[in-house]
Every structure is written in structure tokens, then in C-alpha cells.
């Protein structure tokens, strides 16, 4: 028998129109209990209107060893930021 309840990651939507944000994790025996626990642990002070939970095991994370390969190449590509471009004065409403 597993002694500990599995770990769940909790995502809360603070209001309509915003996306769910990761707020933390908790232990629960199943999804139903995870939602209730999340309600009690993470929405006590009016933080949210919607909760997602996902078992931590089901999350695939990038490996810190690969950070160089994954993220460094974006460092020298300033032209990917809109602020890189000078806009002609005639262009309005941007």
C-alpha cells in the first residue's frame, strides 16, 4: 500500500478572461479530493473562480541540463521583440 497520497499541482484562474496560473501543490487521494483541498488551501482569501488540478506525475518538465540548448539561442535574437522595430510616425494606434 502506498503510504503517501500523491502530489497534485494546482492552477487557479483569478477571474474570467485571465488564464489559470500555477499556485502550488498539495497532497490528495484522488482528483475530487485534490479540488476540495485546493479550494481550502489556495482560495481561502478569494483568490479564484476556477481550479485545475493535475497529478504532478503527469507533468513533463524540461531538464535544467538542456537550458543552454533550449533557451540561450533566443538571447541574441532581439529582432523577435516588437520593440526592435522603429515605427514610422504615420502609423497610429499601435
Amino acid at each position: 500500500m502506498k503510504k503517501n497520497w500523491p502530489l497534485w499541482e494546482v492552477f487557479i484562474r483569478s477571474k474570467n478572461g485571465l488564464s489559470h496560473k500555477h499556485v502550488g501543490s498539495l497532497h490528495a487521494a484522488d482528483a475530487e479530493m485534490a479540488i476540495e483541498n485546493a479550494r481550502d488551501v489556495y482560495t481561502r482569501r478569494n483568490e479564484g473562480i476556477s481550479i485545475w488540478v493535475v497529478e504532478s506525475d503527469h507533468i513533463t518538465a524540461s531538464s535544467p541540463n538542456q537550458n543552454d540548448a533550449l533557451f540561450d539561442p533566443a538571447n541574441d535574437k532581439v529582432y523577435r521583440h516588437p520593440t526592435f522595430y522603429n515605427l514610422p510616425d504615420e502609423v497610429k494606434y499601435i
Binding site: L26, A28, N37, V41, R44
Partner: peptide, 11 residues
Amino acid sequence: PILEQDIALTN
């Protein structure tokens, strides 16, 4: 018995 339930009962 577990942190999450401790909080639930306290709520």
C-alpha cells in the same frame, strides 16, 4: 492527519 485536511477542518 494531513496538512490539507487540517486546513479544511479549520476552515
